[in-house]
């Protein structure tokens, strides 16, 4: 194993040595293409998207007569940006009560994200209420209540292990009674491959619809930014089950690049709304495609990679 460690250290140097060159003014050769591939694969862009991008890039090199590696970088950034769209504004206004449903696998950061979104909305003077729909995980309700306090937003909760659909129903009544504008519904983390838990999620959604026919107005999937290729499967399955309308990606303050977002946006056409970048209530930013693409080319930590 020590040899592997040394090997990794070596790659670090040579990789960045070459990337520095690659994005300098040297000529394009086989190594350049290897580096492009490495950059994309190691950012979790995934094999199919990487292959497609390389093909397009090679074609551009031929067509536009690109010879220098710095031109190639720009062309690659350009191609990457083309795969992403600017997020549309959240559809959470223009009616008495708008509902946002939040879902995702265990540990992706749903509760934290809700706290941050609620805080952001309250700063914009919107009247927000949160429904504690995760009645399953131990102390999830307490966790959400603490986030509610931080954000200055009331949390409607039932008892642990009660029916989440019932909690949601109560929360709608409470939201209406208090003239809230936005209701954010937390749900328990669940693996997309668990049939029964996905059926439960559909039920929560259906209860929302029964009371407010066009609800939920936004259904956001919270994805862990350190997740690899399974993120696409997750997004597909959640979309099939509850018509996801957008994505929040979390933990991008790590060294992970979140490259699976390209495939998710391409294949599923889902806008990416927010990016979670830390544990405080302010650590949520709007998704910015250009910045996101640039971040793929950043080395991150000195001794990383």
């Amino acid at each position: 194993m020590t040899s592997l460690r040394k090997g990794l250290a070596r790659t670090r140097q040579s990789f960045f040595g070459r990337i520095a060159q690659a994005f300098g003014a040297t000529e394009i050769d086989e190594d350049t293409w290897d580096d492009v591939e490495a950059l994309l694969i190691q950012a979790d862009v995934g094999v199919p998207t990487t292959l497609r991008l390389m093909e397009r890039l090679k074609e551009r090199v031929r067509r536009d007569g690109i010879t220098r590696q710095d031109q190639l970088t720009e062309a690659l950034k350009d191609e990457l940006r083309k795969l992403l769209t600017e997020p549309t504004p959240l559809n959470l206004s223009g009616r008495e009560l708008s509902v946002m449903l939040i879902a995702g696998v265990n540990g992706s950061g749903k509760t934290t994200t809700i706290g941050k979104i609620a805080y952001r909305m309250r700063l914009n003077n919107r009247k927000v209420i949160i429904a504690a729909g995760d009645t399953f995980r131990a102390a999830a309700i307490d966790q959400l209540k603490l986030w509610g306090e931080r954000a200055g937003v009331p949390v409607i909760a039932g008892l642990p292990n009660s029916d989440p659909a019932a909690v949601v129903y109560d929360a709608i009544s409470a939201a209406r009674a208090r003239h809230a504008e936005v209701l954010i519904v937390d749900t328990a983390g669940r693996l997309h491959s668990n049939f029964n838990l996905m059926a439960e999620l559909v039920k929560v959604r259906d209860v929302l619809r029964k009371v407010i026919p066009d609800a939920p107005h936004e259904t956001l999937l919270v994805l862990d930014g350190t997740t690899g290729q399974n993120a696409l499967t997750q997004a597909k399955k959640f979309q099939e089950a509850i018509d996801v309308t957008g994505v929040v990606v979390t933990k991008l303050d790590s060294t992970a690049k979140g490259g699976m977002l390209f495939a998710i946006q391409q294949e599923l056409g889902l806008p990416i709304h927010y990016v979670g970048i830390g544990e405080s209530v302010y650590d949520l930013v709007f998704f910015n495609p250009a910045k996101f693409v640039d971040s793929l080319f950043e080395n991150g930590d000195e001794d990383e990679e």
Binding site: D44, G107, T226, G228, N230, A231, Q234, A256, M260
Partner: peptide, 14 residues
């Protein structure tokens, strides 16, 4: 560690 972790796994574990 999460079994769904991507390329980042190496850096996390290391």
């Amino acid at each position: 560690a999460d079994a769904m972790t991507g390329q980042e796994a190496v850096r996390i574990a290391d």
